[in-house]
Design a protein around this nucleic acid. Structure first.
Lengths: 226, 226
DNA sequence: TGCGCCATTATGTCTAGACATAATATGAGG
DNA sequence: CCTCATATTATGTCTAGACATAATGGCGCA
């Protein structure tokens, strides 16, 4: 076992088990280096990784302390719909409803934009309704893309690498029109996922996806110091 | 500017701007060390942090490469309800509905358990309905806790530090009884948050929270290499 | 041609020591 | 007793070098 990894895992274990409680002082780097018989830099690396994962907090001069557990943060995986549906063993299809190549942007995606509406289908049934704006100022080549054969999200993934994103998730009751497009009743709850995507601080795209509540749920995990 | 930080930011910038595309090869540690005039260990540290944040991928002998952007992962913050409501300037109150100290567990929280039901209130109105199981095998002291004056989540936070958790989020239509408890119509969509919490691999608690769809939404952010 | 071995190479980890930085503790002076 | 300057100390960062490890590409052999 690596000394670095060993130190990391022993400390993480002591914290997770409750042996060391939030606010407790962790021994100094020098003490740990002496105890484990390694150089201080090795201890520093291990503690640095624990700090990066949020398990401990380090303050100059003061020392290293067991961190307060976060209120609750978790890593959510927003799946690619084509993959998600394929993983369920169902046939995926994207059905384009409309494209407006001279749309006005909206609050979350200002300026000239492309407006696309369509439905993600699973096994011949509607799975999610999508309305997307693509900022033409940021992605001018989108004007020539073929959104009839490829979902705009898939097209963007291949053209705009490494963006930042914000997701807002809420439960809504669909409008009559939306319910019709999803082939459900107007009383059925839907999960709405609003994703705004930036590149270098400027909005690239804003998409609103409406999922049938009975066919989709999101999962988010939290692992302390994983 | 730290050499380490400078290297990290310059490489992150090149990736985010699209200058270096996914799959591209990053110069070797030796080349970067020579270019920035620093030791290889410093470059290694910078690249290690970029790898930890998912921006690059490192393979022995092969080298360091710009990673493929993740399908979509984001850090979701599950707020403490008391704080969330207080931040809105509304009065928070927890109202206990029932406690069963000899409950059977359920699928997600097996064994003898405490079963608690109650409502989180904001400004005198129902905000979220909560049903919670606490595994007595893991948290025996819960049997003596006073859940009338303190929400069980708040009590647990102070007694069980550092757990792992899984959240499942979906949109549901409330049952007649749930709608009544939330003081909404049965046609109003609700956001359901199911959280299972482990400590050292064993379930500590499972909670289902039902939010009024018109009063709550979740936010999840993704920042490449932040 | 095809298979397997091996040298090469880039990352992974570690050491011992140095200096920087910032926050705390201490002591002197008011 | 309070305040401010200073010494102390723990972390933060870096260097130069060493050895470990694993994957790859090429070479030799069948």
């Amino acid at each position: 076992m690596n000394p670095s990894r060993r130190i990391r895992e022993e400390i993480a274990g002591a914290i997770r088990s409750g042996e060391w409680r939030p606010g407790d002082r962790v021994p100094t780097e020098q003490e740990l280096a002496a105890r484990y018989g390694c150089a201080r830099a090795t201890v520093s690396k291990a503690l640095g990784e624990l700090a990066a994962s949020g398990l401990v907090e380090r303050r100059r001069k003061a020392g290293t302390f067991v961190a307060q557990p976060p209120v609750h943060s978790a890593v959510m995986t927003v799946p690619d719909l084509a993959e998600l549906i394929a993983a369920r063993g169902e046939a995926y299809r994207w059905q384009l409803l409309s494209v407006d190549r001279e749309a006005e942007g909206e609050e979350l995606c200002p300026g000239p934009a492309l407006r696309i509406e369509g439905v993600h289908m699973a096994a011949g049934e509607a799975f999610a309704l999508e309305r997307r704006f693509i900022a033409l100022g940021e992605v001018p080549e989108a004007i020539g893309a073929d959104f009839a054969s490829e979902a705009p999200g898939t097209w963007l993934l291949g053209h705009i690498p490494w963006t930042e994103a914000r997701h807002v998730i809420r439960a809504v009751t669909p409008t009559r029109k939306e319910a019709a497009a999803l082939m459900i009743g107007t009383g059925a709850a839907c999960l709405e996922l609003d994703r705004t995507t930036w590149r270098a601080g400027r909005v690239v795209t804003h998409v609103r996806q409406l999922f049938r509540g009975d066919r989709f749920d999101l999962v988010a995990d939290f692992n302390a110091g994983a």
